[in-house]
Design a protein around this nucleic acid. Structure first.
Lengths: 163, 163
DNA sequence: ATAACGTGGACCTACGGTGTCCATAATAAA
DNA sequence: TTTATTATGGACACCGTAGGTCCACGTTAT
């Protein structure tokens, strides 16, 4: 259970773009050089980010990438969901096991209705995990590319003050 | 980024054990039947749980498994860490990229010391992710096998009251 | 002694993460 | 218009690992 390297690269690439906001259109060469990743692989990642409207891209001479919206409107959650997909953190593999049927058979009109709607019994483990996912998402929604830039700048100027 | 099926099976198996607490020693047959998983695969999982002191096992006739400690002292985090390993949620793949060196070169005695200790620059993305991991862990530490059993019982008796 | 039961090792398969290469399209500069 | 630059998308390769099976062995109760 770990985030993929693609997510890593994507976040760092976006930070680079956010930092170089003034001169728009950062090429894949500069990006791959800055991150230490091959151009070909990073292209794939940038392409994905573009398809999801995180960045814009222009081909041709002097082309490159730029953020599609302000850095403080690109959250970690946005990026992670693009790169990792929108699948749930946890999915009960068989809600029709005896264990689940046992719980379901304790009657309950509500559970019956649940089953009618979704076609499967509910899973209490899944419920707990959904809670965990909500918390995680909430946290990741509050962190943006801009917040990382701010943090970097803060440390920088803090050091400057001490001198 | 998803929890593995093993974690799923492990949690459900432990819930079964917690539910059948009275008659200790639940066999692999009963467990695999209840969860709808093959005996051979589930054995592997139970074995892992035993090695980490989550369950006890006795071989021989009438053998089987039982919880090694009270159900309210087995947290979701415990189980997940056994099954998924203790690796971090996120690890920056190259803290020596130009991007990181750029941040590091802004001087800072503190960052220098960091580098001396760990041998690598710090990564602000990693920092954010570590925060996310802490939150997630805190949540998972508060959910136990017992809490799921309680929830199941609560729903059950709630239905009974209505009748 | 024998049947029931858990253990650990060897092994297999499928899939996805990581990564490369190339043909193509789009764009700016000459 | 031609050429150089740059992003795009498809095809493909590699490989680690999740998921799963099988079997020989050790242990225990009857």
């Amino acid at each position: 259970m770990q985030f993929s390297k693609s997510t890593d690269y994507a976040l760092h690439a976006l930070i680079h773009l956010g930092h170089a906001e003034r001169c728009s259109n950062v090429g894949i060469k500069e990006l791959s050089g800055s991150l230490g990743v091959s151009e070909s692989y990073l292209s794939k990642i940038m392409s994905k980010l573009r398809q999801d409207g995180i960045v814009r891209a222009v081909p041709g001479v002097n082309g490159g990438y730029e953020l599609a919206r302000a850095a403080d409107r690109i959250t970690f959650l946005d990026v992670i969901q693009v790169m990792e997909g929108r699948q749930k953190l946890f999915e009960c593999s068989n809600t029709n096991s005896r264990q689940h049927r046992l719980l379901a058979e304790e009657g309950t009109a509500r559970r019956e209705r649940d089953k009618e709607r979704t076609g499967k019994n509910e899973c209490l483990v899944e419920k707990v995990m959904e809670g965990a996912e909500q918390h995680l998402h909430q946290y990741l929604r509050e962190r943006t590319i801009q917040s990382v830039l701010d943090e970097a700048f803060k440390r920088c100027s803090h050091e400057a003050n001490k001198k």
